[in-house]
Structure formats: C-alpha cells, structure tokens
Design a protein around this nucleic acid. Structure first.
Length: 674
DNA sequence: ATGCTATAGCTTTTT
DNA sequence: GCTATAGCAT
C-alpha cells in the first residue's frame, strides 16, 4: 500500500523540526519506519547517526521488526531503536566516569525503590502507605524537573516538603553509595550531564544526528529536556504524537510538551495524519464527536474510507454478574455465527478489579482468554531473589541486593550479625559485602554469625570470580549451590506453587543463557548487561507463541493503547467508573474522556458498550448513572438494548446458564461435523 | 510451623 | 463485599 499525501510529506520533510499529529490508527509506525528508510536511502544519513525513541520495550521491538522488513541488515547497522530509559542507560554506560559513577552500577526497579524509601523513613512515616506513595512521586517529580536534593530543600515551603526533601537527600546518598541508579536517574543523569558538559553534549549530538520520538505526548519534562539537548541547534528531528491519546498525565507525562515544541521551535513543521485505516466510519464518527468535547490546541478530524459499519450496541445489564453473563453470552453467539477467532475479541475496562467476573464467566464456559497486566514476571519474589544474587555478583556495593539475599535461603545470618556488619561497614565506609572480607571485622563479630557470614561471602566471591570467565556456568553453579529448589519447596504453600516458581527460575536461566551467548541478531552480553536489561524488563524474543494463541483479550483501557481488535466490548460505562469517581472529584474528566476515546478507537468492526443498573461497590449497592460519555455520543448510531424484564437473580442465573449451555452444545455439534 | 481472624484498602502503572 | 495480609493463637 502506498503512503497517503500527508504520510508522504511526513516522511520526506527532513530539513527541520517536525511534529506529526497522528490520530489513532493513522499509520504512524509506518511513517516512522518509512522515514528511517528515507533518511538512510535518500538523505545520505548513516544508520548509526539515527535514533528512534519509544516508551515501551514492546514498541521498540515492533519498530525494529518493521524496520528490518523494509531495510536490509547492512543498512540498519548501528541504528539505535530504544526506549528513553535504554538510551539514557547507553549514555551513562559510556560516560560513567564523567558522572562520577563506577562502571558496574546496578538498577533499582520501583519495588526496590519503595522498599528502600520505606526503610529510610521508618522513623517519620512509620510505613504509612499513602505518605510513602506521595513521597515516591514527589521525589520522582523533583527528578523529572531536574532538581537535586539541595534545590528541592530550597524550594520546599511546607514542613512536609522539607521532610520529603530531606528523605530525598538520604535516598539519593544511599543510591550513590551503593552504586545504584533508579529509573528516573536514567533520564536525569544524561540530561544534567549534557547540560553541564559541552564536550560530551557535542559528542552525542554528533553521534545522533537525526532523532525520532514516538508517543511524544507522553514525555515528561526531563525527557523533553533530553530531546532538546540531543538535537541541539540543528533541530533535525521528528516527534509523533496524539494529544487525544494522552492518558498518562497522572504519571508525569506532559501533553503540554506538544505546545512547548511549537514555542521552542518556531520553524516547526506540523503535519496531521487524519486518515484512519482501522475502524469503520461509524466508530470513527463516534470517537470524533466524543473527543470534540475536550479542549484542543491542534484541531484534527479523523476520517475513514472503510464502510460505515453496523450500529454501536449499548447493553444495559441489571448488575455486574449479569453484565459479565451478557457479554460472554453475546461473545459466544457472535463467535459461533461469524466463525471468528477468539483473539478477535477484546474486553476493555477501567480498573483491573473489573476483570474478575468476566474471567469467571469465561472460565465457566471454557473460553480461552488472556488477561494482560497483573503481576509481572519480574516482580515475582523468586525472580527478584535471583536477580539480587546477580546484582551482588556484578556490583559488590549493592547493599539492597545483598540484604535481600544474605539470609535467603536461610543460612543463620540473623539481624544481630547484620547489625554489627552494618556498623563496621559504616566505620570503614564500605559496602556490606566488601566489608565482610575485612580482617578487622573479627574484632566485632565472632562465633557462629561470623563463620556463617564469611562462609557465604567467600562462596559468593568465588562465584563472582568464576562469572568473569564463564558466566553461564557460574550462574548454574549458583542456583545449584543455593539449593534454591529445595528452598522453594520448603517455603511455598503447595508443591504445585513451588513447581511453578522453579519453572520461572528455569525460564529466567534459559533467557539469561541465550543473552550471555548472543545470537545472530544480538551480540553476546556481559552479566551486568543482562541484569540491567532484566530490570528494565527488556529481553529479546519473549515467549513468541504467546500472542499467537487464540484467546479473548482482557485488559485495562490503559493497556489497550496501541492495539486493535475487530470486536471490542467496552464494559462498565457508568458515572463513577468511566469517568472514574476520583477524576470527577479532581475535575479531571478530560483525561477520562481520552481514555474512552482510546477504547473506542481500538475497535475495527464492531463496538459494544455495557453498563449496569446496579453495581456493588465497596459492599454498598449503587445505582450508577450511565456514563456521560455515552450521552455525548451520536445517539443515531447507538442501539440501546435493555434486558426485557427484570427477573430474579435465581431465574436469571438458570436462564443464563441454560442459554450458554445451549450455545455450547451447538458449538460442540458444529465442531464434530467438521 | 500453621491456620485462623481481624483489619485495611480498593484507578490507571510504558521504565 | 471481597480479598490480601498481618498478627495472633494453637
């Protein structure tokens, strides 16, 4: 398929700063990949002088794959396609000396961060969860606004902010002492470095001569600052974004950066992509009319040349059980009649808790489904344990990792021993692990504690040495030497759970082995690199087959951004849920409207809304109003459908069950015939 | 250790 | 109202 005129223009405009306003489904990834190809083939750019930046590893992977389709291996050599955080990491890895870091730093994920802050603030906050969360986000905001602890303290007005700034200082010092960085540092440090150090900045500006940024509306202040510093006065860049799909402002994203861009770069070329290749005309019309209720800096109106499509259904259920029943019943019938794949359907909701009933109903009806979200693989305790071991191996200063694993599995190293080790390490100004080798330690620690501790640390040192020569064998020996499997069976609630967790460990090990060995696509990595990549949740070729399975997709509206499905159920269209009550209270309904907009524009062919007349919330029976967003939609294109009569819960259950049973039987029959 | 009861907390979560 | 977890009692 050829590019349309706007897409073509977006690809070919390379002489200055360029903003592409890409509506949902308007082919922005095509534009980015084609533009990379154009830069290399027509404009004489070498691949190694181009960088494309995304927000998620998934997006980066997809873009790499798309570029590989268009360009040959040779042409893409050195091309940098990465997330903001990976790009920052690359900079830090090369410039660690200028930043005053040691080479083998390790990374904190948000859990490590939360654990440390909890520990540091015990005397003031006493583990108060909401306070801790506020502290975490305050520190993150300070970092995103490029403020160090001193500046934060200076700017603090209230007592609370002064305390928070003090905690920020403690936190910051602790990270530096342990040679550890958190996620925000990956953006903050390069940005500060480029700001202060002209020589380094020019070197990187020379290395990255053309910059492309995806999902630009999601950038925060420090990310935008980093972009500006990287492109310099030359201002050769393309950013692609859609202010109507900005749904992460609660996480620091500044859609305002779209406006700032036209102020900071007056010569900015603004190109709108308004043709949608995804949805039927009716779905698009509904989306346009809904989002027109939001204020806009850049007006844009999507159109589609696909058919107008069928009416958008609105199903009103009696309560949330009934809602799940209706959706799953509808889905089974539709699947049966239209001979579709289960993976053609998505059920989208505002909050994770809404998935439960749909999950239950799908399970009862033996429909394969997949829920995205939930606890990530890398948040599981067994994985975090193992990564903590590897962090100690690669960064002897990482006290957090050391504390996590020093007595896991149990090896009789108790709090008393660690307390004394901590005091000694403080005196010597060393990390816990390195201090454990000091001869002077024997004056403070004795007996069982000392011998268990040293048995452990000496063993770890041996493994660390081995890891330098043969990392794969070292990790294997580590897992065996720990007898981690037995530990899992001892501590898990059931043998089955232990089995699952060991499977995860083995999965991690096999990924790690691949990454250490390298492949034809990827260079071999060092152990440090592997650990870092895992913390960034960025591994190559994840379980490929997972996405090919034929399963109904369940996910939050946030998680659905960037995806598309032929048939979409947008459930819980009620005031209080979508828009969410807290957003109504905070007068932030516009972002909720964008969330609804994102949901609607996921649908290709058919879109079904559902809502309940009654819903239990926190134990209380509510009678929610239909979402204002439903009322904002063009009513001529909606087909409201209400349950014909109100029946008792008992009857409804029986009727619903027998209806589903009936459909199942038909389905089975049809299968048998084939 | 293990299992029960009381209690809190309930929006989204790219890295 | 439900579920996860902490802390207590067995």
């Amino acid at each position: 398929m050829r590019l349309n005129p706007s897409q073509q223009h977006a690809v070919e405009f390379v002489t200055g700063p360029c903003l592409v306003l890409a509506g949902a489904g308007s082919g922005k990834t095509r534009v980015i990949t084609n533009k990379i190809a154009h830069l290399i083939r027509q404009c004489g750019y070498q691949a190694r002088h181009i960088a494309a930046v995304t927000f998620t590893n998934k997006a980066a992977r997809e873009m790499k794959a798309r570029v590989a389709q268009t360009l040959g291996r040779k042409e893409t050599r050195g091309l940098l396609i990465a997330t903001f955080h990976t790009l920052g990491l690359e900079v830090i890895k090369r410039e660690y000396a200028a930043l005053g870091m040691k080479a083998n730093f390790s990374l904190f994920d948000d859990q490590d961060q939360a654990a440390l802050l909890n520990e540091l603030t015990e005397t003031w906050l006493e583990g108060d969860k909401t306070q801790l969360q506020q502290l975490t986000s305050t520190i993150s905001n300070w970092k995103n606004d490029l403020m160090d602890p001193l500046q934060a303290a200076a700017s603090a007005q209230s007592e609370r902010d002064k305390l928070f700034a003090h905690c920020y200082g403690l936190y910051h010092d602790h990270l530096r002492a342990c040679n550890v960085l958190d996620f925000d540092d990956l953006i903050l440090l390069p940005t500060l470095l480029f700001k202060r150090n002209e020589e380094v900045r020019e070197r990187w500006q020379n290395r990255l001569r053309y910059l492309l940024v995806d999902e630009y509306q999601d950038t925060n202040t420090s990310q935008y600052e980093l972009i500006k510093l990287l492109v310099g006065a030359r201002a050769r860049f393309t950013v692609v974004g859609d202010d109507d799909q900005s749904i992460y402002s609660w996480r620091g994203a500044r859609p305002q950066n779209l406006v700032l861009l036209s102020q900071d770069f007056p010569q900015l070329e603004v190109i709108k992509l308004e043709q949608n290749y995804r949805s039927s005309g009716r779905i698009l019309k509904a989306a346009n009319i809904l989002i027109a209720n939001n204020p806009h800096v850049f007006e844009k109106k999507l159109f589609s040349e696909l058919g107008y499509g069928s009416e958008l259904k609105v199903i009103t259920a009696n309560n949330e059980d009934h809602e799940a029943e209706r959706v799953v019943g509808e889905l089974i019938a539709h699947h049966f009649i239209n001979k579709t794949q289960y993976s053609d359907y998505a059920i989208l909701y505002r909050g994770n808790h809404q998935s439960r009933l749909f999950e239950k109903m799908l399970m009862q009806n033996r429909i394969p489904y997949r829920i995205s979200g939930g606890t990530s693989f890398f948040s599981r305790p067994e994985i975090k344990d193992l990564l903590a071991y590897l962090r100690v191996l690669t960064n002897a200063d990482d006290d957090s990792a050391f504390l996590r694993i020093v007595n896991t599995p149990k090896r009789e190293i108790g709090p008393a021993t660690l307390q004394k080790l901590g005091e000694w390490a403080n005196v010597r100004n060393k990390s816990l692990f390195t201090a454990s080798f000091d001869l002077g330690l024997e004056a403070h620690l004795s007996g069982r504690g000392l011998s268990s501790l040293q048995r452990f640390t000496h063993w770890m040192r041996d493994i660390a040495q081995q890891a330098e020569r043969e990392p794969v064998a070292a990790v294997r020996d580590l897992i065996h030497g720990l007898d981690y499997e037995s530990w899992l069976y001892e501590t898990s609630t059931s043998p089955k759970a232990a089995e699952m967790r060991m499977k995860n460990v083995n999965q991690l090990f096999s990924w790690m082995t691949e990454m250490l060995a390298g492949s034809d696509l990827d260079e071999p990595m060092t152990l440090t690199q592997v650990v870092t990549r895992f913390t960034l949740r960025d591994m190559m070729e994840r379980g490929e087959n997972e996405e090919e399975l034929d399963q109904v997709q369940l996910m939050t509206l946030h998680a659905s951004k960037g995806l598309e499905f032929p048939y979409v159920y947008l459930v819980g269209m009620e005031e209080g849920l979508l828009p969410h009550q807290s957003s109504i209270d905070e007068d932030n309904v516009d972002e909720e409207r964008r969330l609804a907009y994102v949901g609607i524009t996921r649908a290709q062919r058919e879109l079904i809304f559902t809502l309940c007349k009654e819903r239990r919330q926190y134990g209380e029976l509510m009678r929610p109003e239909p979402s204002r967003f439903l009322l904002e939609l063009p009513q001529d294109d909606l087909q409201w459908e209400t349950a014909r009569k109100v029946v008792s819960a008992q009857e409804r259950m029986q009727k619903g069950q027998s209806h589903l049973a009936n459909l199942r039987a038909q389905l089975a029959q049809a299968r048998d015939k084939e």
